[in-house]
Nucleic acid binder design. Structure first.
Length: 423
RNA sequence: GGGGGGGUUCCCGAGCGGUCAAAGGGAACAGACUGUAAAUCUGUCGUCAGUAGACUACGGAGGUUCGAAUCCUCCCCCCCCCA
């Protein structure tokens, strides 16, 4: 496939994926490379509609589709409205709670919106490389059981299914029949996409390997079509934590769930050892730029982290938000200047009059603390600051004297900030 | 359907009538040290109140006890073996 567009350091998709670290396993690398040079290939990745927002964990597959499209191929995103009703046993230790159809519909809309920041979708036109976003409920939900068994079930060997890692790993903990069927449904998705949209490649996390292989088998049997699979590594941070997890849970792409500032901070605070990997995986910077940044050592690595954070934030929230986050961080960590992007809340001026507002309560209200007990503990540990001053009195009340420039600046630990704006 | 083993605080995992808000580990958070990193050391880690108190917690519902996570009954869920 001829490469067009900007920033192409590699003349084919597979080379780029390998250099960037996306490439974990491929069902037939030689065959796939050949196919990709011969034609514009349609490939798909599935996303789970378990929430109305994607999170950092989904960023990796999203970037996979971005690179695919960049190389002139066509990405399809599948939102598993049908399969979400079943639950994938892969990588899980327990049965997932089931979602209602309505909830899934809602989630779908949110996800579609987010994906559209990354991928150029077909707006009813006929652009060759424009992506598609489909809901597998469209072809799964009205399929009759008997019919499905006869059409699809006949192609599956239980012996083979039992041999899959995703199933084996659940033999101890238990696996319900509904989950056992998941791989069949996913395989069926691949078959439908292959048949109806000419899809030849499925990508996904390495935990999807078994499901992808099942799909490939089904395509061969059902459509007599040769298709391929490519998996991405399952990322963990250098300290072994799951990617995109913090104390407060997942890092979301939705600014209402994770503010752009917190999102930016997540990336700035990445472990030194992860920076290079993440630059390759999560940014679209050129090979040259990334290799320059990888040369940095010691404290200078922070420069690379800032670039990483700025780039990823810009991709998710836009350049403008990214710049605001950069400024806010600089203001807070260097002690001055523009603080307009620091997370904040509003409070009427009367709250500070007279006896004022108990700091304990303010900390809980603004979300910095989960409970007053926790707030007390933090104060005891000298972790709380008001206007930069360490607080030692648990019973301190915030009064008008704490208001500086129309706000009260709260800080917990070194990194968590919140401004109460006085209205 | 029968027999056996289990369900404990964010996770793993002890406890098996009081001394249990529950050992130990992990994660997390804070302090020191630093580079908004890692490692290390120290502290914290149910809620409310505030030094000694109350409340809510050990799958669910009852019960026995002065007193239960610990004993009994019923129910739900999981694993293993047999049919």
């Amino acid at each position: 496939m001829s490469s067009h567009g900007k920033n192409l350091d590699f003349d084919n998709f597979v080379d780029e994926m390998q250099w960037r670290g996306f490439f974990e396993q491929c069902t037939n690398e030689v065959g796939l490379r050949k196919l990709l040079t011969e034609e514009s290939v349609t490939a798909y990745i599935g996303f789970d509609p378990t929430a109305d927002s994607l999170h950092v964990g989904s960023l990796l597959p999203i970037m996979g589709l971005v690179h695919l499209q960049k190389h002139g191929h066509r990405p399809i995103g599948i939102v598993g409205g049908g399969t979400a009703m079943v639950g994938d046993p892969s990588g899980k230790t327990e049965l997932r709670q089931m979602l209602t159809l309505e909830k899934i519909e809602e989630n779908l809309a949110g996800i579609r919106e987010q994906l559209s920041h990354f991928i150029k979708f077909d707006e009813g036109g006929h652009e060759p490389g424009a992506g598609l976003l489909l809901n597998n409920a469209d072809w799964l939900k009205d399929y009759g059981y008997i019919e499905f068994l006869r059409d699809v079930g006949r192609y599956f060997s239980v012996n083979q299914m039992l041999a899959r890692d995703s199933v084996k790993s659940r033999m101890e903990k238990g696996l319900s029949f509904i989950e056992f069927n998941y791989m069949i449904l996913q395989a069926y998705d691949f078959m439908v996409l292959n048949r109806d949209h000419g899809c030849r490649l499925q990508m996904g996390g390495n935990d999807q390997w078994g499901n992808i292989c099942s799909g490939i088998d089904l395509c061969r049997r059902f459509n007599q079509s040769e298709v391929f699979g490519l998996t991405f590594p399952l990322l963990a941070t250098a300290t072994g934590a799951k990617m995109g997890k913090t104390a407060d849970g997942a890092v979301w792409l939705d600014p209402k769930r994770t503010t752009p500032y917190d999102f930016y901070q997540y990336w700035v605070n990445v472990d030194d050892r992860d920076v290079s990997r993440f630059l390759r995986l999560y940014t679209l910077l050129s090979r040259k730029d990334i290799e320059e940044l990888e040369k940095l050592e010691g404290a200078d690595i922070r420069q690379a982290k800032k670039v990483l954070a700025r780039e990823v934030t810009a991709q998710v929230h836009g350049r403008e938000e990214a710049n605001r986050s950069v400024k806010a961080a600089e203001a807070l960590f260097s002690g001055k200047a523009d603080t307009s992007s620091v997370p904040s809340s509003d409070r009427p001026a009367v709250d500070f009059e007279g006896n004022g507002l108990l700091l304990l309560e303010a900390l809980v209200d603004c979300g910095l603390m989960k409970s007053k007990g926790e707030a007390r503990r933090m104060i005891r540990q000298n972790a709380v600051r008001v206007e930069g001053e360490v607080v030692s009195d648990e019973m301190l009340s915030l009064t008008t004297s704490h208001i500086v420039e129309g706000k009260v600046a709260l800080q917990v630990g070194k990194k968590r900030h919140h401004h109460i704006k006085v209205k």
